[in-house]
Simulated assay, not measured.
Amino acid sequence: MRILYHHRTRGRHVEGVHIRGIVGALRELGHRVDVMSFPGADPEHETAAATSSGKGGLAGVVTKLPGVVFEMLELLYNLVTLARMGRAWRTAPPQLIYERYSLFLFATVWLARRRGIPLVLEINDSALVTRVRPLTMRGLARRIERWCFRRATGLVFISTYFRDIAVQAYGDIAPSVVSPNAVDLPRFDPARFDRERLRAERGLAGRTVCGHIGVFAEWHGVDGFVEAIAHRLESVPDLALVFVGDGKTLPAVRELIATRGLADRVLLPGRVPHDEVASWIACMDYAVLPNSNHYGSPMKLFEFMGMGVAVVAPDYAPVAEVIADGRTGWLFPRGDAAACVERVLELAQRADERRRVGDAARDYIASERQWRNNAEQLLTLVPDGAPA
């Protein structure tokens, strides 16, 4: 089948990983996939510089505009989409459109219905949830979203919670599946790495290492976790913490570590290219996710588990869909920083437990959460009569 993957994102970081994962899996299943990206974005050829900087390009300029101006440009992008889709149809008509849904974008759904082509929307964002960038024209965004969710051929939600709030708000939406994130297991294979050499090079030899990878943002709770555990580290002298990434709260975390004299116990390497993420996970004995949100499916969760590194994580519904407490990870009551710290400190002294749960986590990923699983799921939404 000829599939057109359309997205209006910058195609960087987590979103780029997801795009490459789905596109690669569809191609492995024997389909021809063309990617139509935002002008200047190329998630299939993301460079290390782009991964680490997070700046530059047309998208970088546009995202700095005031809210209402930014949203008006999002609406106008429908005209760009129609023109680009028209050219694609003339050169290589798709038999299926798979789109990473974006707010205010309806042109693809309208055109697919007009041409009689199946269209599946992947829902990672919504006007129904709290977003990093607040919505100015929320009412209009929700009306467009309702129209798209009802008229697409199918919808792929990243969590059951996400689908439930969409059904509650919009009623009779298109047929849907719940497809959490996944991982490229051959790339996230602990057998690829010389663990002891990496740990020695990074000053972690002889330590029990608990790690985290992700953006230092308020809703991820890294700053609160470090503050809560800082005065307890003396009770577990072999424990080291590694927090990979950067963001708004990183300066506060650095200051806290310096003030408490914990530079030898807490390592902050900053943001690294995605190609290096697995090598950092290889240094870890277990991982921690201090906080998340009600609807998201954290990519880092799957990458940790794929490497056989089990995670201490909050019991939000999307996380609990992936982690079976005590079997493939450990859950604590969301918002309870003290409970998170207690579990991390307890596990620092339970090597057998960490290995048992880590091995089970990797087995779960291998059987259910590789990108091919997501690709197979989304294709179930395509009507039987669609061209193959």
Score class of each variant (00 low, 15 high):
Gly171Thr: 13
Met307Pro: 07
His7Ala: 04
Tyr161Thr: 10
Pro314Ile: 02
Ile158Gln: 01
Arg10Asp: 11
Val156Thr: 01
Met307Asn: 03
His231Glu: 15
Thr130His: 11
Gln377Ser: 12
Met305Phe: 10
Met72Thr: 10
Leu105Tyr: 07
His220Ser: 11
Gly326Lys: 06
Trp330Gly: 00
Leu379His: 00
Gln377Val: 02
Ser159Arg: 03
Leu379Trp: 09
Gly245Ala: 06
His212Glu: 08
Arg8Lys: 08
Leu289Asn: 02
Arg87Asp: 15
Met36Glu: 12
Asn293Met: 07
Val236Asp: 00
Pro290Cys: 13
Val266His: 04
Arg260Gly: 05
Pro175Asn: 12
Val312Thr: 03
Met1Tyr: 05
Ala282Ser: 04
Leu82Ala: 15
Phe106Met: 08
Trp371Lys: 04
Gly171Pro: 07
Leu204His: 05
Thr63Asn: 15
Val183Glu: 00
Arg334His: 15
Lys300Gly: 02
Thr51Ser: 14
Thr51Asp: 08
Arg131Leu: 15
Tyr170Arg: 08
Gly60Phe: 02
Arg114Tyr: 14
Thr160Cys: 13
Gly54Trp: 01
Pro180His: 06
Pro43Trp: 02
Gln349Arg: 15
Pro298Arg: 03
Tyr5Val: 01
Ala48Ile: 07
Ile213Cys: 04
Arg356Glu: 11
Gly203Asn: 11
Ala191Arg: 15
Ala83Asp: 04
Ala152Glu: 05
Pro237Thr: 09
Val68Lys: 10
Arg362Lys: 11
Pro66Glu: 09
Gly56Phe: 10
Leu58Lys: 13
Val244Asn: 01
Met137Phe: 14
Ile117His: 03
Gly203Ala: 11
Glu145Arg: 07
Leu185Pro: 06
Leu198His: 09
Asp325Trp: 05
Asn291Tyr: 08
Arg142Glu: 09
Ala182Glu: 02
Val129Gln: 15
Val357Asp: 06
Val156Trp: 00
Arg131Phe: 08
Asn181Gly: 12
Pro314Arg: 02
Asp184Ser: 14
Ala41Ser: 15
Ala386Thr: 13
Arg369Leu: 07
Ser52Glu: 14
Phe243Pro: 05
Tyr286His: 07
Leu262Val: 12
Val178Tyr: 13
Arg362Leu: 04
Ile97Trp: 01
Tyr170Phe: 13
Thr91Glu: 10
Arg114Thr: 11
Ser176Tyr: 07
Val167Phe: 02
Asp285Ala: 12
Gly60Lys: 03
Cys340Thr: 00
Lys55Ala: 10
